[in-house]
Write a protein that binds this DNA or RNA. Structure first.
Lengths: 197, 197
DNA sequence: GCCATCATACCGACTGGTTGGTATGTATCA
DNA sequence: TGATACATACCAACCAGTCGGTATGATGGC
């Protein structure tokens, strides 16, 4: 429901009605709407970890670069149908709550940070196994992948349809291929380093 | 205010108080809160176009690839301080309203589409002037750039601080450099210029 | 086996406050 | 004189959260 209407627009009563639970029962188990949001973000972290890093077959590929590529392929393959069905609950919620609820922001940060940290492991291993043409910071690339996905979700919501979102992820695929020197055997490495002032 | 608290959490009365206007005056000029949202998205389109495509000095660079690179540098240079000050109003609002208000979704789509179309012009010219190592669809790359920016905004909100967002945009810079085969052609070695206003 | 005690789980009516929007009155100006 | 531009008071709906009360089940003394 949050992925469809947003956090503020989803009332506790809506949630209760959908869950087949009374408001009294709800407030018996959760101190506030905010507490549910935090619990839901935590639960999302666990569910997403299983769905993305445990269940798929490709997570058992031996080559970490193949796993990384399969990971992005997998995320792309999820982008079809209604946006509310494939977008990120945590990313949606944090946009509304980051400035008003530190508890929610922290829970969403934990969720995204856990995802990026896990992804950075494979990236680090991929760098070891297949030295890229330019130096890569694993966590920074994980952040970039996360950003492309979150941004693609916004595109899908905006367009009402996921083709632009998919185009964006396809460019991410191209980037990873270029980084790890697939397709072209180009020897010069005078690429400018990302400049961080 | 929407960039800070979100659309639903921003009341008409809040907006009126901030603008020094009474509620009566507001509803004299706008039929509804939704009508204001649409008008604000339209206004955002115009303001952003001027700020990004007219005012900066680098828009008058002759080489379209230099303009494209300066563009991304410029967007990166804006990512500092509080997230509410540099994030995208339209991208924030559409996430909450895309499923509940077709009028708002359409206005936000028009804003983002106008930005991408304009960016795609420079990309198309850059492709002509500096044939890339792999085929590029101008509008698709524009979508990708837009996605990275929107995703970076989410990262900044989540982390409470924009360094991860900047890392992501720096990867976008690297991608563009790789795409256009920097070093491969006989181009000048540094077409960056200090971004500012 | 039986009852008193108590904690947990839950219900649903209610409350104080907020919200988008309206109805009505008034000042200004062409 | 009439249209425009407001201001003020107000309303019905809604919302998060509370509160008094009930059902259930575990514990323990006798």
């Amino acid at each position: 429901m949050v992925r469809q209407r947003g956090y503020a627009a989803t009332s506790v009563e809506d949630i209760c009605a959908d869950a087949g639970v009374t408001k009294g029962a709800f407030f018996h188990h959760f101190a506030s709407k905010e507490a549910l949001a935090v619990a839901a973000a935590d639960a999302w972290t666990d569910v997403a970890a299983v769905r993305i890093f445990t269940l798929p077959d490709w997570v058992r590929l031996s080559d970490p670069l193949q796993r990384l590529i399969a990971h992005v392929d997998f995320r792309l393959s999820m982008m079809e149908g209604a946006a509310a069905d494939f977008t990120c609950f945590v990313g949606t919620m944090v946009q509304e709550a980051y400035a008003t609820s530190e508890a929610i922001r922290t829970a969403c940060d934990a969720s995204i940070s856990a995802y990026c940290a896990r992804l950075a492991e494979d990236i680090a291993a991929a760098i070891d196994a297949h030295p890229p043409r330019i130096p890569i910071e694993p966590l920074a690339l994980a952040h970039h992948i996360q950003a492309v996905l979150q941004g693609a979700f916004i595109l899908a919501k905006t367009k009402g349809e996921p083709s632009a979102a998919r185009e964006s992820v396809q460019h991410l695929q191209t980037y990873i291929a270029l980084l790890f020197g697939r397709g072209e055997t180009n020897e010069q490495d005078d690429f400018r380093q990302p400049a961080g002032h």
